[in-house]
Amino acid sequence: MKHKRLTEKQQSYINMIIGIIIIGLFLFPLYWMITTAIKPAGESFKTPTLIPKEISFENFVFKNEHGVTLVTYTKNSFIIAIGTTLLTMLLGVPASYGLARFKSKFNSYLLLIFLVAQMMPSSLILTPLFINFRKLSLLNNYLGVILADATLTIPFVVIILRSYFKDVPKALEEAALIDGCGPLRTFIKIMVPICKSGFVVALAMSSFMSWGDMVFSLTFLTEERMKTLSLILYKAMGELGVRWEILMAYATIVVVPIVIIFVLLQKQIVGGLTEGSVKG
């Protein structure tokens, strides 16, 4: 009965407050990571303080014993993430377009391979890739990790983008083609604007996935100057042990670019993921 007395507007505000509390609690681990990183070293050891009393960036300038600075690791991560994203878009976009637009035996097998690849564990191909990369001297090489990371990103991107392209009426492109637009121009003029959020998701997710990969860099990068941020975060957990404020600073550097991009493009990313998943 009590609920009946609330106006719709009041109910909406109550829901909003409940919603904010849920999300606040849910995102606590992220908050905890970042605040630990910006607290002075001593503060994390004492009774945990929810809100940092003092803000300090000393945890970010810590140098490790290998004589390699965070700048190098960050650079490596950027090269690998950008390289993987470029490769993924270069191969994935045309492939998803082809799969969406053209039915053939070959294409249905190819789609099956993409689906299997999306499901398989990385450990399935890890040992053969390691052995093959060793022969081709792709170990301790950006290209090796980029090629391997793309085994995660290309299937993901193809499956999402294909469902976008499939929903664009064929008549639109045919009209453009008949009007004398070449296939490439038709694609850029018609498909890219209509499937914008699909492209945003594809770009964002392939850079996030390759930026955060640990398994492949762990296996293929053994030279210190080649290592990535996420790999060094793992290594530091073994080497620094209890220096959690420094470890959380590393973790913060790993997550901050993703958090920023995500917040800026939230609408497209979430929308794209949902739409892509509904269409299957």
Partner: peptide, 22 residues
């Protein structure tokens, strides 16, 4: 607000493992 939770899903596993270990 619903969109914000998706952040947990896109974060690298290594960072999630790190903060939960902490």
């Amino acid at each position: 607000l619903r969109g914000l939770t998706v952040i947990a899903w896109v974060l690298p596993m290594i960072a999630v493992a790190g903060v939960f270990k902490y």
